[in-house]
Design a protein around this nucleic acid. Structure first.
Lengths: 296, 296
DNA sequence: CCCCGGACCGGAAATAACTTTCAGTCGTGT
DNA sequence: ACACGACTGAAAGTTATTTCCGGTCCGGGG
């Protein structure tokens, strides 16, 4: 049996303040240690007692005494708090992400900015998604005889993604890559079928056209677009809106719109999988099983 | 004189992600340690090697081994990072949505959970991405005569996404959809060319094979995978790791892995666009222009 | 002016923590 | 069934931290 009572003696972030308030009551050597610790938490956290003593021109004993004075059981715990402080003010400084991606940004900044932007897109899309419309779309796809998904360019990949997923749970789905094929496919649709159009701008003719045909054929139509007032919505029974993040020269719209579209598509898929769970679950398991031997 | 070169080996925030990505390659005892560390960073940071070994029912040696595997020189440094992580998530938010998606979840919950999970995947992937490897990959692609991208299934769509982007900035890129075509294509590669393989499991034979051929042909090879210890890395000059989020029946791995892969691909693309800005900018503008009349 | 007392400081022993080694055990493939 | 390899934990070995103790410096009093 151990006696670890999970005691958090010392303050985590209020270290700098503590240094200042206690400085007057410190001896010269201790002040040097305290100052070093306060001015460079990250650097000091990487040092051992001996190292810090050396850097401040004092002895190990003094370092320990200082740690004690600051309210920690020993240097070990001070060091821990120091690491925490460093991490905190490290994460705090990230104003760079508000700026756009520049040509001369270091690669690390690019990663941070892209990740941040895509996270933002996800949050915005989730917040702006109309769950009623989504629910209706889910119900339609779950009950559909077949589902066609239209998309061109980057949105075409999203269309294929949705198609792949639906196929894996045993539903009939198709994503024609060719606009002409899309239209000829759409002609075959009828009531009870579903057509999904994915276009960020909402004004891509090659995607609107098959949706219009499907709409006129009596199929239930769904539009996933970033522009709820765009032409595509004229032929859509249900409109699912994705967030429109800011874009720039180095960061084309295709990038962030794709993220939002994929989220919507995932939601649609999971919703459908829920509704058709009885048949979806075994189908998923089967496809997983079938793929197993393709892996080394 | 000491040799403190101020080296910050391990990432601070990428720890949770690292645990997940490396968990599969861990032994049982190590997994117990890793799980304890990931689930309660603050608590573990307060423990000594012996304490943590006791808590997880293992030995000190195992704890140290785990720390090593996670990329730290020893337990001491892991503990430091742990303290940092604890402080970070203490200060920040974290009402973590831990529950999995259930069959009877209302649609609004599905949206919230999916959005949260994908955001998490983005954050983890960004934190765990090796910018050195990424930079090397960027340089290789930017200078390549041509770039081949291999991927199957969901990863195939990511491969196509990258290809589309590279083509738009005037680079030669190709994503063969057929595994046989991929291999025959790979044979054509030579020094100065680049081959990129995208596979979450890292063990998809149909993707490894063309990469191996490209590797042996002298091309620069890049692997984007969630398993840095998987077979695919044997033939990869540069390995880019994506985060492995938890998955479930209703939320197959393909969903979250795709999000991480896309982020990596985006970073790669933007990096290349920066490097080739002189030619990339006009190419982007031209493709945008060419598409304009396709919109109503 | 010299001596004494207290506080401060650093060296070094003592202790605790961390790391490495090694041998036993368990599972696995032949 | 056997041999092999991998995993694990006990203990030895190493490093870091804490404690102890003696020396030094300063101020005040004899």
């Amino acid at each position: 049996m151990s006696e670890h009572v999970k005691e958090t003696f010392p303050p985590p972030a209020a270290l700098a303040a503590k240094v200042r308030t206690l400085a007057p009551s410190m001896t010269r050597s201790m002040q040097r240690v305290a100052e070093a610790v306060a001015s460079d938490p990250a650097g000091c956290a990487a040092l051992t007692v001996t190292g810090l003593a050396e850097r401040t021109g004092t002895s190990e004993a003094t370092v320990v005494r200082t740690a004690r004075l600051l309210g920690y059981p020993g240097y070990r715990d001070l060091r821990l708090a120091l690491a925490g402080l460093a991490a905190q003010q490290q994460s705090g400084r990230s104003p760079a992400i508000t700026t756009d991606i520049a040509v001369d940004d270091p690669i690390a900044d690019v990663v941070a900015k892209l990740a941040y932007d895509e996270q933002q897109t996800l949050a915005d899309t989730a917040a702006g998604l109309d769950t009623v419309q989504l629910g209706a779309a889910v119900a339609a796809v779950a009950a559909a005889r077949r589902t066609d998904v239209y998309g061109i360019g980057a949105s075409g990949l999203v269309a294929q993604d949705l198609t792949q997923k639906l196929l894996r749970i045993g539903l009939m789905a198709h994503a024609p890559g060719d606009p002409h094929l899309a239209v000829t496919n759409a002609v075959q649709l009828r009531g009870g079928d579903v057509a999904v159009a994915i276009t960020h701008s909402g004004s891509t003719g090659d995607v609107i056209e098959p949706l219009r045909v499907a709409f006129e054929r009596g199929a239930t139509t769904v539009a996933i677009t970033g522009r709820p007032d765009s032409p595509v919505t004229a032929y859509a029974d249900h409109v699912l809106t994705t967030s429109t993040a800011r874009e720039s020269e180095l960061r084309p719209a295709a990038m962030s719109s794709r993220t939002g579209q994929l989220l919507v598509v995932d939601c649609l898929f999971v919703g459908v999988a829920q509704r058709t769970y009885e048949s979806a679950a075994p189908a998923l398991a089967a496809s997983y099983e079938a793929l197993a031997h393709r892996h080394r």
